[in-house]
């Protein structure tokens, strides 16, 4: 364990984590953060789930705790309400920094857990239908735990609200696939 910690290259790459983040357009301003905590104070998720603490996640990222950050479930706990973006004095847009961290997490191959599964469902459905498939999203995100949604699904069925099993496919979907071939693959 100690030997691993002493290994140079790994530590350097971790130290560079903030550079990796600031290289992405959405993570550009990470070093402007002064850790004032206004983001966490404005965060409605943090009010109910102490894990969703944007200030703390940014602090860890700047410290270079890459593995810990990208493997945590907390980075996926963002309701995208943009409260932090409008309140941040330094114009850091903490929500977008978390987005950049999630981008890196996916590129590093993080697949497990509802967060990454939910995010990855979009690209998959869009390539297949051009749209999001709401009917399968709970299954894709939650796996067998979606069973708890059955009562809700039944109520939706009675009210004519259940999503169709397949979304209506976008016309000329081959254009979307061609765009993916050109713009989607190189980033990976």
């Amino acid at each position: 364990m100690r030997k691993e910690q002493r290994e140079g290259p790994q530590r350097i790459s971790e130290f560079n984590f903030y550079q990796e983040i600031s290289a992405l357009p959405s993570g550009r301003d990470i070093l402007k953060c002064i850790q004032c905590g206004t983001c966490s104070a404005s965060c409605p998720v943090f009010r109910y789930n102490p894990g969703g603490n944007p200030r703390k996640i940014i602090a860890k990222a700047v410290l270079g705790l890459k593995e810990e950050v990208i493997r945590s479930e907390e980075i996926w706990l963002c309701a995208k309400c943009e409260s932090c973006a409008v309140r941040c004095h330094k114009d850091v847009r903490p929500g977008e920094i978390l987005g950049a961290i999630r981008t890196i997490a996916i590129r590093e191959g993080i697949r497990r857990g509802p967060g990454p599964r939910h995010t990855k469902a979009f690209a998959r459905d869009i390539l297949r239908f051009g749209k999001l498939n709401e009917a399968t999203l709970p299954w894709v995100t939650l796996g067998y735990r979606m069973i708890k949604m059955v009562p809700l699904a039944l109520r939706m069925l009675f009210r004519g609200k259940l999503p169709p099993p397949l979304p209506r496919r976008t016309r000329k979907i081959q254009q979307i696939r061609a765009l993916f071939d050109q713009f989607g693959k190189e980033a990976q």
């Binding site: 995010t119 990855k120 690209a123 993916f180 713009f183 980033a187």
Partner: peptide, 9 residues
């Protein structure tokens, strides 16, 4: 979500 996985796409 898509913008996080494939920003350019």
């Amino acid at each position: 979500c898509l913008a996080e996985e494939h920003p350019r796409f």
